[in-house]
Write a protein that binds this DNA or RNA. Structure first.
Lengths: 195, 195
DNA sequence: CGGTTCCTTGAGGATGATCAACGAGGGTGG
DNA sequence: CCACCCTCGTTGATCATCCTCAAGGAACCG
């Protein structure tokens, strides 16, 4: 959980409902609000000229998203869409900045959050840029699993979603999974992936 | 300029000299210090298993670097190397964190800095991941030029450096530049690139 | 059942990576 | 002034591989 809900409401936060697939904000538009998820799940993504989408991140209940442009006065570098029906608290940019100013420990919280984002972006780009498809997918899965136990883990993403995260095509993802199965790196049980 | 020098010294900062090509810290090691450049230039980069390098960023006089791991208690995701002889102030992690706590406006400064890093990483990955070589190089050059004037700008990077920034190979970079010249997108004057 | 959404397979083609040489310029020292 | 070295740039040929396009199959849900 990011900012305390009562605090958000007292500073002018309002809850908004978004339907599945509804766009919350568009790439290249001005950032006016701080968003924090009460319920649901949000995808941050870019679209390139050919319509291919690249997923930057998913955000879940309790997460905030789209903060950097509020802090540095730039347009959104990505769009945000509701992955399913969502309830989200929205706070005007000015109030958000005031809160940061007012509460150093909240400011510290966001500093740590941003540091973590930078860190994971670097981890990610390092894995993604140079490497072969199997390496990319492995890196993605490892990052998602995050806990280190050896239990097999049911991957909660479709092949298309993984393709969008890794910058690959669905067919490539499917073929890599077949190879990984043959090499005993994953298990496939009626199309479900266990890593 | 990041943190005031007198402040750094009073909190236990010391200046260190690094020779050209000297490593300042290594990937996958523990972060113990805050670094701020007095003189020189630093490259942050990853190496993959085949020895290919990917450049995350360059840092110049006045910049700080390698802060995120200090804040989130993780190992460095990249190595830092002196691009030329450098003078750098080094401050123990604990002092750095104390300063942030003590001076909210410095904390805010780093919050903005991290937000900016996240922003540029997203801009970057969006351009890099999906796109063709020419698109990547264009995106890189545009991001570096940053000021929007139409003046031709002498690109201050070697082809190899651009390759390391974009995840391409030197030969590919060279061939793209040839194509771009033919299309009048750049000028080449005795091997120098004007964009 | 009918409609989605997701998964799978095959064939073909484009394109970057790779490898191997060579060229060009700049600096240094004899 | 020349010889050498070192870094950077250039070119061509070959190859592996991922993308593309097209089609069909499987699972799930109302």
């Amino acid at each position: 959980m990011q900012i305390d809900l009562d605090l958000l409401y007292s500073w002018g936060g309002i809850t908004k409902e978004y339907k599945k697939n509804e766009i919350i904000f568009y790439e290249n538009t001005t950032a006016r609000f701080y968003y924090q998820i009460l319920e649901g799940c949000v995808r941050l993504f870019n679209t390139n000229d050919k319509g291919k989408e690249f997923t930057e991140a998913y955000f879940w209940c309790g997460d905030s998203f789209g903060e950097p442009p509020l802090l540095i006065d730039k347009d959104y570098p990505a769009s945000a869409v509701a992955l399913r029906d969502c309830t989200i608290i929205r706070l005007p940019k000015e109030s958000f900045l005031k809160i940061l100013e007012e509460y150093p420990c909240i400011q510290k919280h966001f500093l740590d959050l941003m540091a973590d984002r930078v860190h994971s972006k670097i981890m990610f780009s390092k894995d993604i840029i140079n490497q072969k498809p199997e390496f990319r997918i492995n890196a993605f899965l490892k990052a998602q699993k995050n806990c280190d136990n050896d239990e097999k883990w049911l991957v909660p993403y479709t092949r298309q979603e993984i393709a969008n995260f890794t910058g690959l095509r669905v067919e490539t993802v499917i073929r890599v999974f077949l190879k990984m199965k043959d090499a005993n790196k994953i298990e496939l049980v009626n199309h479900k992936i266990y890593y």
